[in-house]
């Protein structure tokens, strides 16, 4: 079987897997040495993967977060929620298929759902603009935030975007305004908001639906002020030094927990979420349900005041020489 996608740092594993596949094609009956070699290879692959994944660099995690087979917003929506209704359109210009908006039921709770939508395969990715929303996507998201606020429905968001789409139309139709209005609405929304970083969390395009009362990060998801490639381009006029700047950007799930920005990390199996999507989806469901439970029973004023206090504490500066 042809492998669909091999990340650079996984090449040693891929080579062993190719060797294993070749051996498996041979007839091993009456060849105990061959059978033993196959067993040894299988163990070696597992060990190598465990070793590699026990100490992934920030840049390697970024690659895992972008793996084409990684579970997407669509998988979470289908698995976590029942009776899902998609709500489309920004009521002004169009419907952006890079952003999902809708209502669903989670563990008996009504929730509003937002999420960046990457496609599966090239065709769907083109339709969904590779998960990079334009102003319409953010305005649709804001419409659903306001709807959730009006009807007292908690909001769950899934982050998986490289960022807002950098195009002429985006600028002409006020992408900065659309993102800022999302932020103003989301930070003051009087219902619980739980955000889940499932893959990429690129800049303002992720932040627009990525501010809440809880932030759950998958182990290999990132959340960053800028993509490592763009940062490298600015610093060195060369995007290929992304691996050097990724650790400096403090963008991994671990970094976010250390900085007090994320509340919990959902572990991924060795090799990433796509190696065992079911276990990851179950763990995310459990984390979201628990978070929503924790946030229950607060008044609208309490919710807004606590979220403001949470945001107010973000940042490190010096004051009065201290």
């Amino acid at each position: 079987m042809a492998r669909a996608f091999v990340m650079e740092f996984e090449r040693p594993i891929a080579e062993l897997e190719d060797k294993l596949a070749a051996l498996k094609r041979l007839d091993v009956s009456g060849e105990p040495e061959l059978a033993a070699e196959i067993d040894a290879l299988q163990v070696a692959i597992i060990k190598l993967r465990d070793t590699l994944y026990s100490s992934l660099s920030a840049w390697e995690r970024v690659q895992v977060s972008r793996h084409p087979e990684r579970p997407k917003t669509q998988d979470y929506i289908e698995t976590l929620f029942t009776d899902v209704i998609e709500l489309r359109g920004d009521r002004a210009f169009g419907d952006d298929e890079a952003m999902f908006a809708g209502l669903g039921t989670l563990d008996g709770r009504r929730v509003a759902i937002l999420g960046h939508r990457k496609g599966k395969g090239t065709k769907e990715n083109i339709r969904r603009n590779f998960g990079m929303p334009q102003p319409e996507g953010f305005r649709k998201a804001r419409r659903i935030m306001q709807l959730a606020g009006r009807f007292g429905i908690p909001l769950v968001t899934f982050l998986d975007t490289q960022g807002a789409y950098p195009g002429i139309g985006s600028e002409e139709r006020g992408v900065a305004w659309a993102i800022a209005e999302c932020l103003a609405t989301l930070t003051r929304l009087p219902v619980p908001v739980v955000c889940v970083g499932i893959g990429e969390g690129g800049s303002g395009g992720a932040l627009a639906i990525g501010v809440g009362d809880r932030l759950i990060m998958l182990q290999n998801a990132y959340y960053s002020v800028i993509t490592p490639e763009a940062c490298s381009s600015i610093l060195f006029k060369d995007p290929s030094r992304a691996c050097e700047v990724a650790p400096a950007l403090t963008m991994t799930a671990e970094d976010l927990v250390r900085l007090g920005l994320a509340d919990e990390i959902v572990p991924e199996p060795p090799g990433g979420a796509h190696r065992d999507p079911a276990s990851v989806l179950i763990a995310v469901r459990e984390a979201v349900v628990r978070s929503l439970g924790d946030l229950e029973g607060q008044s609208r004023d309490e919710i807004v005041a606590r979220r403001y206090a949470r945001l107010r504490a973000v940042g490190v500066h010096t004051e009065g020489g201290v």
Binding site: L183, C231, L261, R307
Partner: peptide, 21 residues
């Protein structure tokens, strides 16, 4: 955003927007 402060800078967008709202 000031990239030398990483994700802390990104979050200033949310903080200032909350204050504006």
């Amino acid at each position: 955003a000031r990239m030398q402060e990483g994700v802390l800078s990104l979050m200033q967008m949310a903080k200032t927007s909350a204050a504006a709202a």
